[in-house]
């Protein structure tokens, strides 16, 4: 569909983006991979100039063997799983609700979407102080109003609290995408089902939900990729204590706090592999969409 001339021009125009991303991907990745096989403790004087000691897979073994590894996997799974469950279920319900005829639909939509635009450090701090603080938080007032003892959310129920905060941030994303998907459902299909005698629940189960299947998959995959690397929310609330140290946060601490670069890099490689497993599924779906 094009001439030789425009093809070579096209290649030239693609070059900056491709080269930059290639560099962005390969250079740090190669370094991380290299560090992960070395003993690299800058605090004890190790540096690239002096040469790093090759230790083979020792860091990989130690990272998995450390007492913090499995708890961090558990925390990651609970947080990612919890947020996915909440956002998808509530997202579907909210999307259906927002698709109904009502007064002030535009405004409700704006209210629901707003949390997505709040920067992670703000939402974490607002929730930590304004909502969940055991003395002055809104929850503590409500608890006291009903005569209950206020809860120190972020220490006594730390994982559910983080899940709540992150879900609040991501629910708008899920809702918005599912709402877009619902609106693309052919209303004649629903009318046909109604004529066929299907009651509301059956229409939801047999028509709406299958139609949303693809959008739900996309929501799950994209959120998983972002949720696996949530950072600021934990950084400013619990700092990784009270069982909220996720894999990402553990790696961060290994690299930044304990300055064990080799060990942190090995953890980084695990995280990259994990993210790529999810990414493959996402890319297959997106790729199929390109062929249309």
């Amino acid at each position: 569909m094009a001439t030789q001339h425009s093809r070579s021009a096209a290649r030239l125009m693609m070059a900056p983006a491709v080269i930059l991303l290639l560099g962005w991907m390969l250079v740090p990745l190669t370094m991380t991979l290299w560090f992960s096989f070395t003993r690299y403790l800058p605090m004890r004087g190790d540096s690239i100039e002096r040469g790093l000691e090759w230790v083979g897979f020792e860091n990989y073994v130690r990272f998995i063997g450390s007492s913090s590894f499995w708890p961090s996997v558990q925390a990651t799974l609970m947080i990612v799983g919890g947020v996915l469950l909440i956002t998808v279920v509530l997202g579907v319900l909210l999307a259906i609700l927002l698709d109904q005829p009502m007064w002030g639909q535009g405004i409700v939509r704006i209210l629901v979407i707003a949390p997505f635009f709040v920067m992670p450090t703000v939402s974490a701090l607002v929730w930590k102080n304004m909502m969940m603080d055991p003395v002055n938080g809104m929850f503590s007032y409500i608890w006291r109003f009903f005569g209950a003892d206020p809860v120190s959310w972020l220490s006594d129920a730390s994982v559910p609290s983080i899940i709540l905060i992150v879900s609040w941030q991501w629910l708008p994303f899920a809702t918005l995408i599912l709402l877009t998907a619902i609106q693309s459902l052919d209303s004649e299909q629903l009318e046909a089902a109604e004529m066929d005698g299907a009651p509301v629940l059956a229409r939801f189960w047999f028509i709406v939900l299958p139609h949303l299947g693809r959008a739900i998959t996309i929501v799950i995959l994209i959120q998983t990729i972002f949720l696996l690397s949530i950072f600021a929310e934990i950084f400013v609330t619990t700092g990784g204590s009270f069982g909220t140290r996720t894999l990402t946060y553990l790696i961060f601490q290994r690299v930044v706090d304990s300055q064990n670069i080799g060990l942190g890099s090995a953890g980084g490689v695990y995280a990259i592999i994990l993210a790529n497993i999810v990414a493959i599924f996402l890319m297959r779906i997106v790729g199929k969409n390109l062929d249309r």
Partner: peptide, 21 residues
């Protein structure tokens, strides 16, 4: 298509994995 998908895959790189480099 491959280039587009590859570009997408760079977005999936967990930041913490390349923080130190």
């Amino acid at each position: 298509k491959d280039i587009l998908l590859w570009m997408l895959s760079t977005k999936m790189l967990p930041a913490v994995g390349v923080l130190y480099p």
